[in-house]
Amino acid sequence: MTIRDDAFLSRLSSRLLQVPPVHAGELVPDWAPLTPYDRPPVEAAVMIALVERPEGLTVLYTERSPDLRAHSGQVAFPGGKVDKTDADVAAAALREANEEVGMRAEDVKILGYLPTYYTGTNYLITPVVALVSPSGPFVPNPGEVHSVFEVPLSRILERSTYGRFKISRQGKEHTTWQIDHDGHMIWGITANLTRKFRDLVMDEDAA
């Protein structure tokens, strides 16, 4: 499969949701806390950014600052909570990507959306998939991001890239997907969303 041409991007766009998903029905978290939440989930958005490079498309990741209280040092997509001032989840993802790595809105073309992802910590995440033609380097905001790196899309699409990561929470063990790339360990929500994106691109069910 050629992953740089317009035909690939057209196929990808046809498989994505073209409007932000509206979730209806019971939410099933990626892991179940001992005590269910009695409040609505926190709306959040992340950007799965396909970056145009001379060697082909890449996927952008950030390594969170070790000084953050939550998920410090972990690998993540640019993103965060949806603010009341955000027009929609795409606007939230664009705002967060600008705040975290200096991504310019005019460099971004929104391709579509993945279905929402509900976490065991009561976040309802909408993944926003975008094509990015950067007009300058991505610059980490030191208050939030320790570093920025990119993984070739060709590697993201390979099934052999993915392993399993075991986590113990509240006395229960569960697993997530895991990607080990160049010393960066991607696991948890970010790896799970990456795998969902990969399976959608390849038109395969998760195994």
Results as ranks from 00 to 15, higher is better:
T175N: 02
H184S: 08
Q178S: 12
A191G: 04
A191Q: 06
S154A: 15
K172D: 04
Q178A: 10
N192H: 05
K166Y: 00
W177K: 09
T176R: 03
E158P: 07
M185D: 10
T161D: 08
I189Q: 14
W187N: 12
H181A: 13
L193T: 02
M185T: 14
D199A: 13
V151N: 10
V151K: 04
G163W: 08
S160R: 14
T194L: 14
K166Q: 01
L153Q: 05
R195N: 13
I186M: 07
D180M: 12
L193Y: 03
P152I: 01
G171H: 03
H146S: 13
D180Q: 14
H184W: 12
F197A: 04
V151W: 05
I189Y: 11
N192K: 05
L200I: 11
S154R: 04
Y162W: 10
N192Y: 06
G188A: 08
F149N: 01
D180V: 12
S154E: 15
T194F: 11
F165G: 01
A191I: 02
S160H: 12
V151E: 11
I179V: 15
I167F: 00
H174P: 01
K196D: 13
I179E: 03
V145D: 04
E144Q: 13
T175G: 04
T161M: 15
D199S: 14
K166V: 00
T175Q: 07
V201F: 02
I156F: 13
G171W: 02
K172A: 08
T161N: 04
S154L: 01
S168I: 11
S168D: 09
V148M: 03
G171K: 02
W177D: 07
H184P: 05
H181N: 10
S154D: 11
R198N: 14
I189S: 12
F165K: 01
W177E: 10
T161G: 04
W177I: 00
H184G: 11
S168F: 01
S168A: 10
H184T: 12
K172F: 00
M185G: 08
R155S: 12
T190C: 13
V151Q: 08
I167K: 09
T176N: 10
G143E: 11
W187L: 05
I186G: 06
E150F: 03
S160F: 04
R155P: 00
V148A: 06
D199Q: 11
W177N: 10
T176C: 06
R195E: 13
R198K: 15
R169F: 06
R198Y: 10
Q170Y: 07
Q178K: 14
N192M: 09
